[in-house]
Nucleic acid binder design. Sequence first.
DNA 1: AAAATAGATTAACATTTGCTCACCTTGTAT
DNA 2: ATACAAGGTGAGCAAATGTTAATCTATTTT
Lengths: 224, 224
Amino acid sequence: MAKILIVDDEAGIREAIREYAHFNKYETDEAEDGMQAVAKCLNNDYDLIIMDIMMPKLDGYSACKEIRKNKDIPVIMLSARGEEYDKLFGFELGIDDYVVKPFSLKELMARVAAVLARKSHGAEAAKQTVLKSGGLEVNMDSRTVTVDGIKVDCTLKEYEILAYLMQNKNIALSRDRMLQDIWGYDFFGDDRTIDTHIKNLRGRLGEYRDKITTVRGIGYKFED
Amino acid sequence: MAKILIVDDEAGIREAIREYAHFNKYETDEAEDGMQAVAKCLNNDYDLIIMDIMMPKLDGYSACKEIRKNKDIPVIMLSARGEEYDKLFGFELGIDDYVVKPFSLKELMARVAAVLARKSHGAEAAKQTVLKSGGLEVNMDSRTVTVDGIKVDCTLKEYEILAYLMQNKNIALSRDRMLQDIWGYDFFGDDRTIDTHIKNLRGRLGEYRDKITTVRGIGYKFED
DNA sequence: AAAATAGATTAACATTTGCTCACCTTGTAT
DNA sequence: ATACAAGGTGAGCAAATGTTAATCTATTTT
């Protein structure tokens, strides 16, 4: 199980990342600024760092530079939208990826998985990449859905929703939570948009359409 | 035992929260507006703050900002339905959760428990998600009820009532209290509505129907 | 660059569900 | 026996969901 250090001065963002990271079975630790991050890295072994660029005391770039003097830990940088940064400079420091705020947690975790896979820090437990339920299959590597062996074309959101529901099978999921986890914390739209995607998704699942059950007053659930 | 600061200008809401919090074994303190809240936080140590956004003198956001200058206390914000609030701004302030009025006290306390569990750095007793009594089972993840292994479809209110009764088994619960805790403090309807739901619920429980006993003159009780 | 396309979102309308309440019946305590 | 509380029933209505279509947005094609 990989251990991630989350570095951001905003507690809310740390928490959002932490929660979703835990949901994805990562361990986490946190730091509030660059100084703390450097200190924590001296005494702990992290598999990856998610770090904001703009921080008090010591910014992300400088912290990264400092940490790299001692350890070779992959880093994903967060930067505010419109914040002018020198991407190349980042890559020279060996930064592994950028994510621009506001980002969806899902996207961030996808990048985390990608970076970890790339670095493949020794033997990492193979992550579950195929979700199955009867003749319904979701391949998370190829991002494809098959029904009784026949590939079914899904849109991005349909795929994301199906994968999310199946990862949390037999749990009633509220619309709010789905918006948080799939769309991201910065989505302010109508939660009924989920209903439309669910309808379209069901239309593609043929005989398995009823595996997605409606939980009246709450949201939806995948029943295995 | 956690101590909660309740901040709202409406005495009725403070009282409703206070009572249910005490019932859940939390200590409470109260403030009527943001200014009072800030002052109280300087002289006391709270584990969590429940605060309304719209308040005289100093609103919730500003109060939160002010308090955060000195202490890092988790905050759950209350906001009226339809009240425009900036979720992202909330995240920046490190607000831990939002609850939209009108809310059920049960839901609010569930969030309180969740936030406190999160903050208490793991090492918290795993939450009970399955309530059992003989062959009667309520799964709070999937929101399902099974009678002798057979799944029984319940409506939202039926499920909520059964879960509530079982969580408070062997305690006689008044209709008023049930309305408060399940429907929410803003429900002004007829308390005989409960009777109808109880009747329907009993109809689904087969041989276990008598586990829900009538406490004449008071309300109902689940006997284990 | 304009047009075409696909997908996401929202809005509008249809349908279903089940909550609530009024009314009547049954049960129980004194 | 009487009075009051609870149980049972069913209709009206509000809320939640399903469905369809329109709109908006981003991307691709020409």
